[in-house]
């Protein structure tokens, strides 16, 4: 059996001639949070819909718990909780009444399931407020409650922080983290907000124009982040020569006539600056630079960035 809880193999969805998702291969490991990151329209929702069998793939395969989803829906789907796109509930019913309908269909006759799910997302049990009177944030919380109500092993959450206020986002983040760390859930979460994914996910998949561009753990990605010291000097060639001869390093990059980037972080900036000045160079700028995840994603996605 595969090590992955969720796995796609060359998953493709075409609408007419246009590929919404193309040859996608994602791998979600057990007990980890996988963040599917991509801009709006990148194919995140289509991918998630295919994972849940809501959309039939044009080609390729989805495997969950080691089995193909197609033909095994009855076995696999009850072990998954999901939130896809906007929260869908009956507006004329209260939160409890809404959850009751779905709980019964899932065979959960005990109302404690509903009570516990609502408590988890800080919504009142047996409240008289109708779903139509809920704010977007409350609706989103209710959708999360529905996703976790039956205590699934896997959660597939499409943009779960949509509509939440900053405090709600932080709460949701720690709630999702807790589900993974304490309860051992495997979570696939999609977002177009880079900061959210970087704060939450253990593994990241970057999707753009329906294609998976990168799939790595956050730790690996962070290791790839470049740190360097940027100097703005009167002559970058002379500065390069000094770095080679005095500091015995070749890990630098001349950007232009006045700018040079030193990749080696162990060298003392103050000594380098003093050396440059003593050798007749004018140093107008010297600072530590870090290529952020966003810069990295911009690079990966061809310069368009994420959010």
């Amino acid at each position: 059996m595969s090590d992955y809880i969720i796995e796609t193999r060359n998953l493709t969805k075409k609408y007419g001639n246009q590929a919404s998702v193309s040859e996608l291969n994602i791998h979600v490991r057990k007990g980890r949070i996988y963040g599917l990151l991509g801009r709006n329209g990148a194919g995140k929702t289509t991918t998630m819909r295919m994972l849940l069998g809501l959309t039939v793939p044009t080609s390729g395969e989805v495997r969950i718990f080691g089995n193909p989803i197609q033909g095994n829906e009855k076995k696999i789907l009850p072990r998954i909780g999901s939130l896809i796109e906007s929260p869908g509930f009956y507006p004329n019913l209260t939160a409890t009444e809404n959850l009751k309908i779905f709980a019964k269909l899932r065979g959960l006759d005990n109302e404690n399931y509903i009570k516990r799910a609502l408590e988890l997302v800080n919504l009142p049990y047996r409240d008289k407020k109708l779903f139509s009177q809920y704010s977007l944030g409350m609706k989103q919380r209710l959708a999360i409650a529905l996703a976790v109500m039956h205590d699934p092993a896997v959660l597939i959450l499409d943009e779960p922080i949509n509509g939440l206020d900053p405090i709600g986002i932080a709460e949701m983040r720690s709630f999702i983290r807790e589900l993974c760390d304490v309860k051992g859930k495997t979570i696939l979460i999609s977002s177009h907000i880079l900061s959210e994914i970087s704060l939450l996910a253990d593994d990241i998949g970057i999707i753009d124009h329906g294609k998976l561009l990168e799939e790595e753990s956050l730790a690996e990605l962070e290791q790839k982040n470049r740190h360097y010291i940027h100097f703005t000097v009167s002559d970058s060639r002379q500065a390069a020569h000094l770095l080679e001869t005095v500091f015995q390093t070749r890990t630098f990059k001349i950007r232009d006539k006045n700018n040079i980037q030193l990749m080696e972080m162990n060298l003392p900036v103050a000594s380098i600056t003093r050396c440059f000045v003593e050798n007749g160079l004018e140093v107008s700028e010297a600072h530590l630079c870090e290529e952020t995840l966003e810069d990295y994603f911009k690079k990966v996605t061809g310069g368009e960035g994420i959010a």
């Binding site: 809501l54 789907l77 269909l105």
Partner: peptide, 17 residues
């Protein structure tokens, strides 16, 4: 039309119904 208008069909499909 209830499932269409309230976007609840997906919630039923993933049960699955």
């Amino acid at each position: 039309f209830m499932e269409r208008d309230n976007d609840t069909f997906k919630n039923l499909c993933v049960i699955p119904v």
